[in-house]
Design a binder for these strands. Sequence first.
DNA 1: TCTATCATGTAACCAGTTACATGATTTT
DNA 2: AAAATCATGTAACTGGTTACATGATAGA
Lengths: 202, 202
Amino acid sequence: MKRRQVGNLLALAALSYLSRQPMHPYELSKTLRTYGDERSIKFTHGSLYMVIQQLAKAGFVAEQEVSREGARPERTVYGITDAGRAELRDWLRELVGQPQHEYPAFVSALSLVAALTPNEVVVLLRERLDGLAAQRKEAAEIIEKSEAEGVPPLFLIEEVYRVRLLDAESAFVEEFLAKISDPDEGWGPMWAAAHGTTFNPE
Amino acid sequence: MKRRQVGNLLALAALSYLSRQPMHPYELSKTLRTYGDERSIKFTHGSLYMVIQQLAKAGFVAEQEVSREGARPERTVYGITDAGRAELRDWLRELVGQPQHEYPAFVSALSLVAALTPNEVVVLLRERLDGLAAQRKEAAEIIEKSEAEGVPPLFLIEEVYRVRLLDAESAFVEEFLAKISDPDEGWGPMWAAAHGTTFNPE
DNA sequence: TCTATCATGTAACCAGTTACATGATTTT
DNA sequence: AAAATCATGTAACTGGTTACATGATAGA
């Protein structure tokens, strides 16, 4: 992965929308929320202004005009530049073509999970399954609802991806639970012994 | 999710290792690398000193002694406190029990992928499949090698998780490719038309 | 003996989050 | 008319990354 002058993925979304039409930051913020991009890209009001500033400094967007309506604060409208268009394409291509090594919280937790006792872990994993089911339901509903509204499925592909990942994670958690509790080969007893206790899941 | 006084997951790993024995930061760094935690938890030299400082400020770890060998810089040894132990348990429990909403780069990319043409996207997705296969191979090899060395499988569970996710992602990418190129219902032609071009994958 | 790498830490910089500010509308 | 919320932006704080420093050891 090349290191980008502006690395925040929010910048990618900004470039993408600005490539359709110039906007001022607040409008961008509205647009992002309207199209549900907040589910895929983390952003707050503050980080957006930040990113726009960085994009401007890097020459990927440029001030178009500064206008004022009544006594409101000035609104600065930004448009994408040629360099910005190039960056957008290049960056998107990289993100689609090359998987990156990432650090989801659950991976970190799993790498340290031995610090808990197997008794509590089985309870927690069951809780997690519920949470995963809830997230899956939410994603599935968004897909359904949007499709009913006529949104072309290409624009929902990231939710489909999410659903696939959630399913895989659920399957993994079940598998892990089984590995702990298997009556013959289960890890539970040895694991509990290392904590000076015994394995008894309810 | 509660908001933690120290939020960086590196702090969790630090607490976990310090709960076994007091160490100075550099030693911690070594230990983390030795046990392969760098695959699950992002850290650099600098960020480690950072989080130790934060942990100390929050009262989760405490200076134990400051020693000096010859003319080397002083080494400060830190130990976990009772509050630190409590935080470790509570945090780990939360991470295992409750799935969080996260923002992997590929999700963001997918949400904007319509900005590329379907022709290039199919090429990129095929590239991605190769990359995913490589990552999968790497993870599988780590598991095999470690098991051969007698590492108990519980300590490899996060790599198993990784493999499951990689498989799910590969399956998804294949599915996406099919949806684009399907001879009857495929999205390719319409998508290309929106870019003022035609769909012809090689 | 020169160079590389290890060992250990600090300081400066940059990015992201939170809090603040303030007029305009809308709701109660 | 008061309270809430929208609209728009800036400033301060905090966390994380990168670069700098410097003696010690090991390899060429």
